[in-house]
Design a protein around this nucleic acid. Structure first.
Lengths: 91, 91
DNA sequence: TAGATGATTAGATTAGTATCTAAATATACG
DNA sequence: CGTATATTTAGATACTAATCTAATCATCTA
């Protein structure tokens, strides 16, 4: 569970994708154009991000729109805090 | 820089080591006993954690004492926030 | 329905990481 | 100094992850 999240964040390209999505949703193609890797490679990264719950995807005709799932940030913050401040009960 | 940090957190064993160190410093041997892996393997993990600035080490005679470097938590929190909230200036 | 476009999946290759055992280094102490 | 104990480093292996090209799937439109 948290494993998928940390693993997803471990790759710099995926972190860049997240930062790009801060500026708003984008299609797979638009995202792929902003990175040097092949489309297929980016598609793989999208899958990882999705599995970690960091992004959502929605098909719009031929396009697939990816957007940031900000609600995971809460979980992430909790996990981070948990790594350093155990005394805090997980309410 | 941040890459080393995220990579260090990507491994579940290393996250467990961090959680163990929340309860206070421990020697390499003490830590190694709490994990199924070989001592050498744990030593490798310590190096990764150290390189990421997550732990400190100090030699005490024959022993090497590892402790959590809580000051990195600030950086970590900032990086996390940065991934999701770009509008915040990095003051 | 056929062709074009957008996206994902399959299969293979390469690079990186976790792990082990064995050897090396560091320190203490008799 | 020589041995015991604690830890790290070297070298090898297995596993995982990133990447590519080619093929497949999905949708639109003429």
């Amino acid at each position: 569970m948290s494993d998928a999240l940390f693993k997803a964040l471990a790759d710099p390209t995926r972190r860049e994708v997240l930062k790009r999505l801060q500026r708003g949703p984008a299609t797979a193609g638009e995202l792929a154009e902003e990175f040097p890797q092949a489309k297929a490679t980016l598609s793989h990264h999208f899958n990882v991000l999705k599995a970690a719950g960091l992004v959502r995807s929605e098909r719009r005709g031929q396009h697939v729109v990816y957007s940031l799932n900000t609600s995971v940030f809460e979980d992430l913050a909790r996990m981070m805090a948990d790594l350093f401040k155990p005394e805090r009960k997980n309410k």
